[in-house]
């Protein structure tokens, strides 16, 4: 398994107030998942990455068109993802083709 690392920056500003004055900062590692190449990949990547990393796709159980239609519809109707109907269809086809039943 590959090991990703990330820096953690901890800044301690000492004040008389004890716990007051502490700032904790972290830097999240970059996203590293890439989707399979194919028709609709660009639209899928652009739309889905507005809210979440692509491992939200790749770790799901593979599903047919009905499953992925359900997912894309939920993203649009429930979470309000701004995806055009035309792109939605392309994305559903892409996902069913590349992340279909395994």
């Amino acid at each position: 398994m590959r090991l990703l690392t990330a820096a953690v920056a901890l800044t301690l500003v000492v004040t008389s107030a004890g716990v007051a004055g502490e700032t904790v900062s972290i830097t999240l590692p970059p996203e590293s998942i890439a989707l399979d190449a194919g028709r609709g990949m660009d639209q899928t990547q652009t739309s889905c990455r507005m809210c979440h990393s692509l491992d939200y796709i790749t770790t799901q159980p593979g599903g047919g068109t009905a499953q992925w239609q359900g997912v894309v519809t939920k993203m649009m109707k429930v979470y309000g993802a701004p995806i055009s109907d035309q792109d939605a269809k392309l994305i559903e086809e892409y996902l069913a083709t590349h992340y279909g039943p395994r």
Partner: peptide
């Protein structure tokens, strides 16, 4: 993958963001 996030040891990555 095993990943190492800030203040964390090697953990199993489910999703990044």
């Amino acid at each position: 993958q095993l990943v190492r996030y800030p203040e964390k040891t090697d953990l199993i990555l489910l999703t990044a963001r």
